[in-house]
Write a protein that binds this DNA or RNA. Structure first.
Lengths: 196, 196, 196, 196
DNA sequence: GATGAATGAGCATTCATTCAT
DNA sequence: TATGAATGAATGCTCATTCAT
């Protein structure tokens, strides 16, 4: 008798999610059909439904993104000797990454979907919470070391992430947006705000 | 002989757009069917298509939002005696308005759609441009009056609007977000950035 | 009080039929919509239905073609001194006319429709009958004058018209069809058949 | 693991085409809806579209008729010892077959459609070409054997097929058409034309 | 574990037709 | 006489999902 093979199962799940991502990037959640996804992932319709209960499950699984990258970056911040200089650079980097139209499209799609789907919203919200907590810890540890101004850590975290999101959005939507100029301005602003 | 009645036409168009808005709010663009819209607007399918060539036309007409409100607010800024205090208040107000989940949902939907539909993107982009230009003018006139720091006006406009968008988004997504605290922080930050 | 104006009515009818013909040529009966016809004819939907009970009535009125042209040609045959030469020329001319793809398309459309619509079939059939009777008379008078072989007049008429139709069809469908060669062959064939 | 079953697929395709034929016979191409076809074929809408990309594909597949029967008949001609007698009989048989109103209706429908649909026209034209070439070969071999007059083979083929089509059409359209009389006349005519 | 076959409700859109003015 | 406004059933087609093998 054949035994369940968890590795294979994990691989299949990933294979499907990869196919789904390509479809979602190309068409969006609601425009990508399950047939599209199956074709792109190279599996049959039946298998799709063996690994995911329905389309929503794929979307949810897909949308619950990996925040490991951002958290790693925040950990660098926590360890940085000069957070006042580090933070603007971090913002710049995050904003640039997510201002890539393709990424922006996907992110917006996920966010839009989460505003209709409570389960997804919760998942996204919790993931975001994790990142926020990491940021708060980093801020607090830097404040304890006297390297950062004594501002409300939660509000500061929200401000910093808000800046990332807002700047990414502007970079996408505004033709005349000049990243370098904007980033210098933000650098100046944050330097004066953050210095202890 | 019966004559065409532009008033009636205008009213019907609005009636359809109103119905469409209710559907879009409730379900999103792609989940709202033309039948839904017709039913909600209280017209027949045939009439729907007499007034709008296709679904995309309804979405486009709907998405090309009126920026008159924001521009009016910016005009107040241009006339303000104390822009350094006015700006944070303006940001606060705009952010609160758009942080209403229902509004946020719709705005996100429009933005997401615009990232797939070039025509819509252009329309949105141009509308945003108008607002941005108004802001740039306001900033420059305040700078000329010596009431605002000599920063790059375009970058400053982008920063301010980016803050609005970013803060609205955080307010929606982050449970522990405390509007009052965040707004105070932003106020402090901008005060020091903007004072001449 | 306004009085009915038969001339105007006749003109309107013709105007609609002309518009309909353009539509039918361009799209075919079933692909042309009443809206198309109204637009092309430059009248409103309401007027269309005032002059024709429904779409079928337009098609019927349109399809009941004028056979006056063919009958006139046949009358020339009746008067001809050399029918044995006249007939092949007549066939050639008729076949060429109806081999024009546009005309062929319309004729085929009408015929196809008549095979589904008994009323139309009757009308078409009767019109065809008139032409056939004219041809039979012409043949008989020429036979009486000893200028044509003593063949069954009805069968001969059917053969001649059948040749016209068949040759037109071949001219349309067969790429390598050579009208001149075919017509010469038919000429030879008929000459030997018809000579008294 | 279940394997694709080409036999089943072939059977399903045929089942659909059979249903489609019944619908096309009853209503015509444009009057038969896909729902009609699905119902008549006893399959679901989804399956219909699994086997045929769209309606046009069904029509095309249906219209690209099998010319094997006619070609077989022509091969008999090629082998015949007395082509001058064989040909009129062949024409008679073909004309009778296609003069059946039901068959005529379908044939006319296909032809009409081909005049609007270039792809279909090409298919039909090529099929017709095949038949024509077979006829030309048959004629030439009989001519080489001295059993047929030395006429242009292409023109003769076109004439013969034109006669079939034209006579079939007359048989359908003309109430007083007398097949037996007409066929005798044609027999006489061809006998004198074809004898070497 | 995996596949291909099948479903039928639902979608955007069109159409012949009617009605109020 | 003529128009513009309105209808709603129907159409070609798609889709998430289920099932037998």
């Amino acid at each position: 008798m054949r035994k369940a093979n968890p590795e294979l199962q994990q691989q299949r799940r990933q294979q499907i999610l990869d196919g789904a991502e390509r479809c979602f990037r190309a068409k969006g959640f609601h425009q990508a059909s399950m047939q599209d996804i199956a074709r792109e992932a190279g599996v049959s319709m039946g298998l799709l439904y063996r690994y995911f209960e329905n389309k929503e499950a794929i979307v949810a699984s897909f949308a619950t993104t990996d925040s490991a990258g951002v958290i790693a970056l925040i950990d660098e911040l926590a360890a940085s000797q000069r957070p006042v200089e580090f933070i603007p650079g971090m913002i710049r980097r995050l904003a640039r990454e997510s201002a890539d139209p393709d990424t922006m499209r996907l992110y917006t799609e996920v966010f839009a979907e989460s505003l209709r789907n409570p389960r997804l919203f919760t998942a996204l919200s919790e993931s975001e919470d994790g990142v926020r907590q990491a940021m708060i810890s980093a801020i607090k540890s830097q404040q304890a070391a006297g390297r950062l101004a004594q501002l409300d850590a939660g509000a500061l975290a929200d401000l910093l992430f808000g800046l990332v999101d807002g700047i990414s959005l502007r970079a996408t939507l505004v033709r005349q947006f000049k990243p370098a100029v904007a980033e210098r301005l933000i650098g100046t602003m944050l330097a004066s705000l953050l210095k202890p």
